[in-house]
Nucleic acid binder design. Structure first.
Lengths: 338, 338
DNA sequence: ATGAAAGCGCTAACAA
DNA sequence: TTGTTAGCGCTTTCAT
């Protein structure tokens, strides 16, 4: 389609720095300098160069630049999965911050694939830094990344690697105590703690809060989606001595559990308490509205981008570890509040 | 951290194809051939090369490869915004398909920035193809992308450019007729049609369906988020001759409108009908559950990746235009259904 | 089947 | 201030 003029003998269609240099009557180094401001250039020379750039529609090849400058001006973010509001929000915060810092963003979702480590290593080859969420790759793979700046999010701290997490413990404990305060006794924690270090920590906290009031919860494994929530909760609630509280690992499980409870005629918040985690949009629109824990998801993503950038620019060389506050959001699904 | 052995005199830390070649006792061309299978290599030679690759932990530099091979093995996707479930789902479908096709994914959100066009042009320099959602950039910018494969989603067809859209018209008309069937007369369409060609088409369809039953709707501009939905709906519902139906451009506006209605004591589905568009998770968990139109968001993303890939691989050279079916999902927010 | 060598488009020393 | 030139790490002819 585009048939821009090419001064040098290149194939029409690809304008290189040589074309610009020829057109402006200067050397290629001057073009580079004029465009990047990496060294002083006479005003009128610069003007001529920029005019040529404009006329030819020149845009530097990224491959050439990154090969020569040994930098990619891009960083990656790796998710275990991309579904659900949680990851979407984190990505949103990340992209915003990264692009503000002048870096492109590469996304990768591992979907629990067996070749996830290879995919991440490949991604590592095209970025200046990497953010890794949760259990996406093995510790060995991270170590194998060499000196590539890495920030892990919601994953146990690794020697020398920056990390960002949310403080699950405090809110979890508060949730446990709140539930005990409602007089709930048969509490089931819904969600597999070994799938995610985050969840393990939450269950620890909730249990702490509960035990302080003499209640010992049990754990039932469950995948982190709505459908699983409905299915597992249905099984749990069907028995005679059914639980009077379902504490779910995320809002989607909880929302699914609400469906299961209502299907068998239970009134959520009266006959059974159900709580979630994350405070996604659906949590506040559900009726009864979902008691949950708010995580600063967007901030999490943005902070990851910033922490990573500090490493890439070598503005900082020692590890940084951040923990973001969470907040218990009490609504109606855990019991009546006058 | 990593201190892998380097045979050639390069800086420790970066293993190049020369190191591998030296170690295996072959030329660099043979290493390239052995790794890519681009030409026959003797079995024992290949074995030696691969062993060296393994021992040295060699991983080809992307910049080098893409400069020499004139390809990026990556493609980009540009969103007007990344917030909300709609875009998250589209991205999910896209990433999945793209990575299945062996391509990395670069995301960019324009957030209505004035320099969006420049950002997109920059992105264009590092990918083999681009998916553009909605009104992210001007037609001129797209044309200026030259022969870079481009797929536009939810945007009017452009000469020679592949496009994917959802069929707004059919479901919109059905929605209009359904609403008229409820006996609703004062219908307001909430959402700015000039912001999005998609919305314009929806309003056209809804109006068609309504007018067939003698109802003429009015349009009230509104941004596409929940907070705006609440604010604008509150204003609309406060007047004496208030509307008896609020048809919203997306679910988030609708959910916000429900909040506004309930705040002034109106019963949604009885005193006022409210409908959305997209069928996000919150739509089915809201009470009353939201009547809306389901869009195949994930499929939209996946299809975009596939259509783009056909162009990149030159498997197809003529434009392709797809329209995906949508479905009216009737729940309780538009009126009582026995 | 293999090696030597010529680029790919750019940045950055080094000269002038 | 500017031009020349040597790479950056790879793919791909062209010889052999």
């Amino acid at each position: 389609m585009k048939a821009l003029p090419t001064t040098a003998g290149g194939d029409a269609g690809t304008v290189t720095i040589y074309d610009v240099a020829a057109r402006a009557g200067v050397g290629i180094a001057t073009v580079s300098r004029a465009m990047n401001g990496s060294a002083p250039v006479a005003d009128d020379t610069r003007a001529r160069v920029l005019a040529a750039v404009d006329e030819l529609g020149f845009r530097p090849s990224h491959a050439g630049t990154s090969l020569a400058a040994r930098t990619h001006a891009a960083n990656g973010i790796v998710f275990p999965d991309l579904s659900g509001p949680y990851y979407a929000e984190v990505l949103l915060g990340y992209e915003e911050a990264a692009s503000r810092l002048g870096r492109s963003v590469l996304v990768l979702a591992t979907h629990g694939r067996p070749d996830a480590d290879a995919a991440v290593r490949d991604l590592a080859g095209r970025v200046d830094g990497l953010v890794l969420l949760g259990r996406t790759v093995t510790d060995e793979t991270i170590a194998g990344l060499g000196d590539l700046p890495v920030v892990v999010v919601a994953r146990p701290v690794l020697a020398g690697v920056d990390s960002i997490r949310t403080d699950n413990l405090t809110a979890a404990r508060a949730l446990g105590e709140h539930l005990a305060g409602h007089g709930l006794r048969r509490v089931v924690l819904l969600g597999s703690p070994d799938e995610s270090p985050d969840v393990a920590e939450r269950w620890r906290g909730v249990r702490d809060g509960l035990v302080a009031h003499g209640v010992e919860p049990t754990v039932t494994p469950c995948l982190f989606d709505e459908e699983s929530g409905t299915r597992v909760a249905a099984g749990l609630l069907a028995v005679r001595e059914r639980p009077d509280a379902l504490v779910c690992a995320n809002d989607e499980i909880a929302l699914g559990a609400i469906v299961a409870a209502e299907e068998i005629g239970l009134r959520v918040g009266r006959d059974v308490a159900i709580t979630g985690w994350d405070d996604v949009m659906a949590a506040r629109h559900a009726r009864p509205a979902l008691t949950t824990v708010r995580q600063p998801m967007r901030t999490l993503g943005a902070l990851a981008a910033e922490v990573l950038d500090e490493r890439i620019t070598k503005e900082r060389t020692t590890p940084r570890h951040e923990s973001l506050a969470t907040a218990l959001v009490v609504r109606d699904s855990c019991g009546l509040h006058p």
